[in-house]
């Protein structure tokens, strides 16, 4: 992983998404910097609560789709009219209606694959990646907030812990990653 990434964390765990959302809002209000937030399922309102920007994946998808459309149309046109024009069943060499299905399919194909690959790259997901698991139950039923504890003093850490507990966290713990740690 990134060598400059912090290795020392405080992890707060919640067990109900609504409490969790409130906690995030309150903590942020207090000025606590949240390093990451892990949930077992997409919690609605989480991105607003965390103040995240709207993802631009849709836009990327549109451009990938447009690339597909252009590529399909221009390639078919080039093949049928310039590179190797052939008479098929008396049809014209630029049979636009025949191009529609493939153009549509390639648009979808490019949009889907482009978006998914972008998604994987941006989310740092690839086969064999070893993720940092702050708590095993974050993929099960616990909603976690992760705070960067690398540069914090013990007092600051404790205040964060207290704040979490106050906000209904069922558990708060320290998590330190060492280089050798795997799954």
């Amino acid at each position: 992983m990134d060598s400059v990434a912090p290795n020392k964390f405080v992890v707060g765990l919640w067990d109900h998404e609504e409490v969790y959302l409130h906690a995030i809002e309150h903590l942020r209000h207090k000025g606590v910097k949240i390093y990451d937030s892990l949930t077992p399922f997409p919690v609605h309102g989480l991105d607003e609560a965390l103040g995240m920007k709207e993802t631009r994946l849709h836009t990327a998808g549109f451009f990938f789709g447009a690339t597909g459309t252009t590529l399909a149309l221009s390639f078919m046109t080039w093949v049928m009219t310039t590179n190797y024009p052939i008479d098929f069943g008396g049809k014209p060499n630029w049979p636009v209606p025949s191009f529609i299905p493939i153009t549509f399919e390639l648009t979808v194909l490019f949009a889907a694959w482009g978006m998914t690959l972008t998604y994987l790259v941006r989310n740092k997901l690839w086969p064999g990646r070893v993720p940092r698991i702050y708590d095993k139950r974050t993929t099960d039923d616990r909603f976690a907030l992760v705070f960067d504890a690398e540069s914090l003093t013990d007092a600051e850490i404790n205040s964060i812990k207290d704040a979490c507990k106050k906000e209904g966290a069922v558990d708060v713990k320290d998590k330190v990653f060492t280089e050798a740690e795997g799954l």
Binding site: D36, S37, L38, T39, P40, F41, P42, V43, L46, D47, L50, M52, T55, L57, H58, G61, A111, A112, M115, T116, Y119, L120, R122, N123, K124, L125, W126, P127, G128, R129, V130, P131, R132, I133, T138, T139, L183
Partner: peptide
């Protein structure tokens, strides 16, 4: 299973993009 999950973490940003991707797909 980690191999299969592509190293899924479940972070907020991942979920946000996940939502966007599922919607479009």
């Amino acid at each position: 299973y980690n191999l299969a999950s592509f190293g899924w973490q479940g972070s907020a940003k991942q979920w946000q993009r996940f939502e966007a991707l599922s919607l479009v797909l």
